[in-house]
């Protein structure tokens, strides 16, 4: 049993003749692209010269022309700072933890949601579990500090009834990453299911019927129909997720961490934020951003390459 949805990557390449035949129609395709390209060029590429700030000692009042070049100094400042190795390691490790534990969650949740038979219940649940996406990290941080408090927090009370000593989740390097991953999962899983739920609608119900006729149970149907049906979206999401590996966690960690857990949770974004407090370090922050972007872009390129090679599909 295979997924019948044809996909770009597996579609046969067009022959030269058909390109010529469709030349008029293709002009129409480029025409459709025009507004998007125009917005992109004007608002994204015109200001792109700003990356040069990373190689200057930039002052906003002197402008691009007036600020002196400093070559790679700003990058050196990042790489040679005492804590760089620590924060780099934390960044990578926290990202990987989140990728491994959180990336599959919305897919699983979407599939399980799909298995709920009561339509009204399903709709209600969908509407409720995406709520936390709308809460800011500051609020969520406050909620979990209360919930995990050692002075009467619900979780520690519960642990206490099993005779377990209270755990200072927010103050312990051993537990804090767990808190980061759990809260991120709680906040975004419901919201992230939406794109998979939409993808379910592309699956031909006939396939389910056929599977049923073949006597396939629920698991087989999920494995052979549902998953292949949404695999293009899964691949897309995974590759795009790779691009934000280095940048995604700053806001959350800034809202939740404290100095006692810097050792396990200080990442590039939070470190640069603290060092730059009260300073006008445009050049340094641009350099850090550029470093993160280059890595993110490299990850996307290799993700897409590997995906094309082994899964025979990719973004391009």
């Amino acid at each position: 049993m295979t997924n019948r949805n044809p996909h770009s990557a597996t579609a046969p390449q067009p022959s030269r003749r058909s390109v010529c035949k469709n030349i008029r129609a293709d002009r129409e395709l480029y025409l459709l692209l025009l507004p998007g390209i125009a917005v992109l060029l004007l608002f994204k590429y015109t200001p792109m010269y700003g990356v040069l700030i990373a190689f200057k000692d930039y002052s906003i009042f002197d402008g691009m022309g007036g600020s002196p070049w400093v070559g790679m100094d700003n990058f050196r400042k990042l790489f040679e700072s005492d804590d760089f190795l620590l924060v780099l390691r934390n960044t990578v490790e926290i990202s990987l933890l989140k990728l491994v534990f959180l990336f599959p969650l919305p897919i699983i949740a979407a599939i399980l949601l799909n298995e709920l038979r009561q339509l009204a219940f399903r709709k209600a649940v969908q509407t409720v579990i995406y709520l936390p996406h709308f809460l800011s990290w500051i609020i969520i941080s406050g909620l979990f500090i209360d919930l995990l408090s050692i002075n009467g927090g619900l979780v520690n009370k519960l642990l206490g009834s099993f005779g377990i000593e209270p755990i200072p989740f927010f103050l312990s390097n051993a537990y804090f990453r767990g808190v980061l991953v759990t809260t991120a999962g709680w906040k975004e899983t419901g919201w992230s299911t939406i794109v998979y739920l939409a993808a379910f609608s592309t699956i031909d119900p006939g396939l389910y019927e056929a599977a049923r006729m073949d006597g396939a149970g629920r698991w087989k149907r999920i494995w052979h129909v549902t998953l292949p049906g949404i695999s293009p979206v899964i691949v897309l999401m995974l590759i795009l997720r790779l691009g934000s590996m280095f940048t995604g966690d700053t806001e959350q960690i800034l809202a939740m961490y404290n100095s006692t857990v810097y050792k396990s949770s200080d990442i590039i974004g939070t470190y640069v934020y603290r060092m730059g407090l009260g300073k006008q370090e445009y050049s340094f922050t641009t350099a850090v951003g550029l470093f993160e972007s280059v890595i993110g872009f490299a990850l996307i390129l290799s993700g897409n390459y590997l995906s094309r090679k082994y899964l025979r599909r990719g973004i391009w």
Partner: peptide, 12 residues
Amino acid sequence: IFTMLFSGGLIP
């Protein structure tokens, strides 16, 4: 996709 990762930044 390039613009998802690279931007000229706030000032420009």
